[in-house]
């Protein structure tokens, strides 16, 4: 869905999404890194189980919530991606024991 418009200025940052190896650029937010890697499903909603993707990219909409290094409900658009970070899609709460609330 997205591609880079310029060449990288430094070595890639490696992270995982649901266990899959991904690369990002230093300075990317987690959300930008996921979108650059083709991820369109960041989380499933607690009410209807619908897939959601980052929407506003500025911390307003909370649709980019993901689990980062085991901690749920992190706003992917506000969190810089770092080397070795483990990012996971956030499933609907039925599958997580209701921890979203």
């Amino acid at each position: 869905m997205f591609k880079r418009s310029d060449d990288p200025a430094s070595a890639p940052v490696r992270f995982t999404f649901d266990g899959r190896q991904m690369t990002a650029r230093a300075g990317d937010s987690v959300a930008a890194a996921l979108l650059a890697g083709g991820v369109t499903r960041f989380r499933d909603t607690p009410v209807g189980g619908a897939p959601r993707m980052a929407y506003c990219m500025m911390g307003v909409c909370f649709d980019c919530l993901v689990r980062i290094d085991g901690i749920p409900n992190r706003q992917a658009c506000l969190e810089p991606v770092t080397e070795g970070m483990a990012v996971e899609r956030q499933p609907a709460p039925a599958a997580t024991g209701g921890e979203l609330r």
């Binding site: 997205f2 930008a32 979108l35």
Partner: peptide
């Protein structure tokens, strides 16, 4: 609310902060 739908501001933030263009 669908994936692949964003705000134009979000598109511009992705461009400014990560150099991302629609592919």
């Amino acid at each position: 609310t669908l994936p692949q739908v964003m705000t134009a501001g979000a598109g511009q933030i992705l461009l400014k902060s990560a150099g991302l263009l629609p592919s």
